[in-house]
Design a protein around this nucleic acid. Structure first.
Lengths: 237, 237
DNA sequence: CGTCATATTGACTTTAGTCAATAGAAGTGG
DNA sequence: CCACTTCTATTGACTAAAGTCAATATGACG
């Protein structure tokens, strides 16, 4: 099913009743493919539906008047991208596809209806929103506390574990489609500095990057360098 | 009433029914005073209650093993500090009082009970959680996109509007209890750099700082410098 | 084959951090 | 009230990190 990864993620909080699961599976109403860089939701708009990543990768970003861009979230398959727009509108940021991606759209009215019949599901969705916020806090700590190479290492650790939760890590290797410019806009540093920091990580033989793929050569060392503690991701192993 | 500022804030999303308002008013069960720097909730713990700022100021922070600290949220009277702990535990950060403060505690069981009888209130609380996340995203953009003086100016703009929502701005002046070290831990910069950036803001006659108080001398210029757009605070005037 | 996006490199500038000393302010106990 | 300690703020000199600009690969792709 389309929403299987989402259900698997939500159940990391609390198992869903079979009825709730069925209701979730019946929820998405539109499925669409987006090309790399294509806008999914625009800053300032007030969408009446929320998006789920089915395949590929999406990110959310804020843009200032002069064109500068800050990426504020990154989403892998199974993530409810803009669940918050269910209650908080207009959007304070845009959503775009980081690569060719498949996105499912769920009307807010449909969410409201499902929650009405399965009130307990509300807690699972609140958990998902809270998890999103926890990741944002961790990013703040990464930006404020860690020098550039550590910060990038931290990002790679996070994506390693999130992709693994989505079942998308094979042989310590996963798809990573952000350009160095994207990484810079995410970490708050210039693309040139990203380039040099990545070179440092490769020189230490912590990672390999080829095409749109990252291979983690020494997870323990990468975690130590990044001072990464996966607790904030609330993974269940 | 103790929770009046909270109710006033929640109603910026959607008016509450008189019954829901009554239920909220009856909710807090413990009221306690905390001294400056006193821990309210500790990182790693799994509290069974959430805190509301009644008077004073609280902030949330993450600490790394080597003692470095990142402040990830700042709370004024009427804020539900750690509502997310209702669904997301253990805590990925600590909460502390920034000055002598009064905090109300609400057991999660009580929240669950109120939501059961007033399911519509759930949306107001989700809105509050989403707003908290929106502020976190804006902070990311402040950290990643703005040079130090602009970033601090942005923080002061935000606190100006949030304090005003709480009814705590008089003559463009409000209580601001963070030390320069605190501001540094919030913005991801050294205290020395905070000091010099604040001097720049004062030299331009944008603000005045005296004791634990900030006076905004030229709000429009401060907003322009900070490239501040209050939309993310979802204020209703 | 040429175009465009992305990655890489070097030289140089700017911003911010560090260290250390000093000055003020606030609180404490006698 | 004063002497004392302890934060907090301020300053200067120096270092380190990161940004900017510009040129040059490299690679994907029509």
């Amino acid at each position: 099913m389309i929403v299987d990864p989402l259900i698997r993620k939500l159940e990391q909080f609390e198992p869903l009743s079979p009825e709730a699961r069925t209701a979730l599976e019946a929820m998405p109403s539109r499925l669409r493919e987006y090309g790399k860089g294509e806008l999914i939701v625009e800053q300032g708009s007030s969408p009446d539906e929320s998006a789920i990543v089915v395949k590929g990768c999406a990110f959310r970003f804020k843009r200032l008047a002069d064109g500068e861009r800050q990426i504020v979230a990154l989403h892998v398959p199974g993530d409810f991208v803009d669940l918050h727009s269910f209650v908080l509108r207009p959007m304070d940021h845009s959503v775009t596809a980081a690569c060719q991606s498949i996105i499912a759209r769920v009307p807010h009215a449909k969410i409201a209806e499902v929650l009405k019949h399965h009130p307990h599901l509300t807690r699972n969705l609140m958990w998902d929103m809270a998890l999103d916020a926890a990741i944002a806090r961790e990013w703040m700590a990464a930006m404020g506390l860690r020098p550039a190479p550590e910060q990038i290492a931290h990002l790679l650790c996070e994506m390693y574990f999130r992709m693994r939760r989505a079942g998308l890590v094979r042989d310590d290797s996963f798809e990573f489609v952000l350009t160095q410019q994207d990484i810079g806009d995410l970490c708050g540093m210039s693309a040139v500095h990203v380039n040099r920091s990545l070179q440092a990580l490769r020189a230490r033989e912590l990672i390999e990057m080829d095409k749109q793929r990252v291979t983690v050569l020494a997870l323990d060392k990468l975690i130590a360098l990044a001072r990464f503690d996966s607790a904030y991701l609330h993974l269940i192993e």
